[in-house]
Write a protein that binds this DNA or RNA. Structure first.
Lengths: 222, 222
DNA sequence: GTCAAGTTTATTGTATACAAATACCACTGT
DNA sequence: ACAGTGGTATTTGTATACAATAAACTTGAC
């Protein structure tokens, strides 16, 4: 399926915004951006609409498009919701998971283990993402899975940051094991609790991280 | 704050789609719609982008915009997620609710009571919506509240339909009382359970409703 | 020197023009 | 009769032109 220019612009801009290439509150100049992407303003503005819908931009009528990075408060709120969604995925997955699905999840977890012993943060992040995505699908609720993925994408750089905290990768791996064990036993309550905690810990401890947070550090971590 | 044409088109189209003015899978003709709204294709297409982002349209490259009504399965999935979000709102609200917030919620509930005794379904729907919106805010998590509102809007006509089922309005009111009582006692667990059930019941029993569901009936109910 | 009003400039919002791709349809050949 | 082909018409995607509004600047009065 071929893609419109507007779509590729959207993807590119989304990644640029999420990874912090633009400062919070910065106004995106339509003409300059259009030149930069070698397109006219029309597809660019269509991309703006989509990005605004997902909260990455704020479109102020007659004033322009402003990038909106979540503040610390909104970030904690988003983690709180993410924890709930993942917990829900775990609860449902524990009841609905197939043998094949479990095998795939186990596979992703094993890749995580390998990345951990290699000390390869990038690989761990990648396989961790796969682990969670498989779990979303295992919930058997495609709408839930899609919402979870949407939110995961927005939290992406912040989840990634945390892996660089000393010991976090190992701790995360331990939590994965507990999640899998709950899934294997079909313990919905346990799966929910473990997953919620697995995400909530990231939100709750965020203030610590933010204390030493600044733009350049974040970009490096990403 | 004045509004762009694209915004008002988006609102109008959203309402038209949600209330079922277009059939599922129907292609929206840009030119005809532009004429109908007395605008050019440009603002219309910008509105399309936003509507596609919220799942109301599917934009197929080079083929057009197709309205996408949730099927019965997706609908049940959405109710399942809505139940979780509302339950979460209840849990948080029980811990964070202020006296003033509780008073407002009580106020909305009283209006519901009045609508119930008057047999006024429209008024009940309106005040019920206010009741739930106050609850979202009471969660103290603005991101959660905004997500809950988004999903509520999409489920709007289906929630509304249910009020026309014999006895549902009275039953709903009883659930509201239980929710308030849990909030008053600060019982987070109870508030979550009650609210989740309050929404889940709508999703779970949906198959019954759908058995006799058809387009014209739905439009009448809305 | 500062503030205010008016004018200029820049920027957003919308309409139109054009390009590119798809759908439609008649026609031909088997 | 039917599949395939070519050509036309329709429709989407993008560029550009124009209109409307807000920002920036100039000028003038106090």
């Amino acid at each position: 399926m071929e893609q419109r220019r507007a779509d590729s612009i959207r993807q590119t801009l989304e990644q640029l915004i999420i990874t912090g290439a633009f400062a919070d509150g910065e106004r995106l100049d339509e003409i300059r951006l259009a030149e930069r992407f070698s397109v006219s303003r029309t597809p660019l503005r269509e991309a703006f609409q989509t990005l605004a819908a997902s909260g990455l931009l704020e479109l102020v009528p007659r004033r322009g498009a402003y990038v909106r990075h979540p503040g610390i408060i909104e970030l904690v709120e988003m983690f709180e919701v993410m924890a709930e969604l993942e917990g829900m995925c775990g609860r449902l997955a524990a009841r609905r998971l197939t043998d094949d699905g479990l095998a795939q999840i186990n596979g992703a977890a094993e890749e995580c283990e390998k990345a951990l012993s290699d000390g390869d943060t990038d690989a761990y992040y990648r396989e961790n993402e796969r682990f969670h995505n498989l779990l979303y699908d295992a919930s058997g609720n495609t709408f839930l899975a899609s919402e979870a993925r949407k939110l995961q994408r927005r939290l992406q750089p912040f989840r990634r940051m945390q892996l660089h905290v000393r010991g976090r990768m190992k701790q995360s791996m331990g939590e994965h094991r507990a999640i899998i064990s709950a899934l294997e036993e079909g313990d919905a309550q346990m799966a929910e609790t473990e997953l919620r905690g697995h995400i909530a810990i990231q939100g709750e401890k965020f203030n610590d991280l933010m204390a030493q947070y600044n733009r350049s550090k974040m970009r490096k971590a990403v």
